[in-house]
C-alpha cells in the first residue's frame, strides 16, 4: 500500500529523509491561509529553505507538500475539508486540521488536542424572523448540510423533524418553502439577516481543531507532541 504510514525508524530520527516523520492533512480553501501562518509561527517551515507559505501555495498542483518541523520531514496533504477526518481516522495522515462541525457530523474518533482558534463560528438553528413553530402540531422540515448533527440536536430536545439534505445555499430553503428551519454555520449573522432569517437556537460552538490519529499520537509521540507543544505556546493555551 503506497499510502501506508511510514515506519517508526523515520519518526525516531530527524535525519532519516526518505519518509516523513509525520503526515498532516490540511483543508484547502479559506482556512488554509490562517493555518499556514499559525504553523509558521509554531516553527514549521517549507523544505529546503522555502517558506511554509510558498510550500503551501494553492496555485501549485502538487498534492503532497514538504515541510520541516524541528528538523523532522513533514508531509502536508491538501484535501477537501470533508476528507481530512477520513485520512486521520485511517492513520494515513497522523494529524489533520478540521472544523468541529465536520468532526461532529461524521462522529470522528480521534484526539482533538489543540483548538487552533481559527474560523470561530456557530452551528445554529435558524428560521424566518419572528416566526415561532408549533412543533407539537406539525413536524417541521429542516434543511441542512449537517443531517446527522441536526438529527441529534432535535432528538436530544425531543422534537421530531424531517431532515432535508441540501449541499448549497441553505438559506434558500425557508424562503422557498423547502423547509421551515435550517441548521447551518453562522459567523456574523449578516447572511441570515439579508434573507430575513434569524438564529433560533445554538447547536454547537465551532472552531478549527488539530486532530490526531490515536495510534499516531502514541507511536509518533515525539514529532506530534513537538507540534502540539509549540502550537499551544503560540496560542497561549
Amino acid at each position: 500500500m503506497s499510502g501506508a504510514p511510514p515506519s517508526g525508524e523515520a519518526a525516531a530520527s530527524p535525519g532519516a529523509d526518505a519518509r516523513p516523520a509525520i503526515t498532516i492533512a490540511l483543508p484547502k480553501g479559506r482556512t488554509l491561509g490562517p493555518v499556514s501562518k499559525l504553523f509558521a509561527r509554531a516553527g514549521m517551515t517549507g523544505d529546503a529553505g522555502v517558506s511554509l507559505a510558498s510550500a503551501l501555495d494553492e496555485e501549485s498542483r502538487a498534492l503532497v507538500r514538504r515541510a520541516r518541523l524541528e528538523g523532522w520531514l513533514v508531509h502536508l496533504l491538501l484535501l477537501k475539508p470533508d476528507d481530512v477526518p477520513t485520512y486521520v481516522a485511517y492513520g494515513t495522515a497522523d494529524l489533520g486540521v478540521c472544523g468541529r462541525d465536520v468532526l461532529v457530523e461524521h462522529d470522528v474518533d480521534a484526539y482533538h488536542p489543540v483548538d487552533l482558534g481559527i474560523g470561530r463560528c456557530r452551528l445554529v438553528v435558524a428560521g424566518r424572523v419572528g416566526e415561532t413553530l408549533d412543533t407539537a402540531t406539525r413536524m417541521p422540515r429542516i434543511a441542512t448540510k449537517y443531517p446527522r448533527a441536526a438529527a441529534r440536536h432535535f432528538a436530544r430536545r425531543g422534537v421530531q423533524v424531517e431532515i432535508v439534505n441540501v449541499q448549497s445555499s441553505v438559506e434558500l430553503a425557508p424562503l422557498t418553502g423547502l423547509a421551515d428551519l435550517i441548521v447551518d454555520l453562522v459567523e456574523t449573522g449578516s447572511t441570515l439577516a439579508q434573507n430575513g432569517l434569524e438564529v433560533k437556537e445554538d447547536v454547537l460552538a465551532v472552531s478549527t481543531l488539530l486532530v490526531a490519529n490515536r495510534a499516531s499520537y502514541k507511536l509518533r509521540a515525539e514529532p506530534v507532541r513537538a507540534l502540539v507543544r509549540s502550537l499551544r505556546a503560540v496560542l497561549g493555551a
Partner: peptide, 11 residues
C-alpha cells in the same frame, strides 16, 4: 492498556 504498532492506524 492498548497496544499500538505501525501500520493499521488503530490499536
Amino acid at each position: 492498556f492498548s497496544i499500538y504498532a505501525e501500520g493499521p492506524g488503530e490499536p
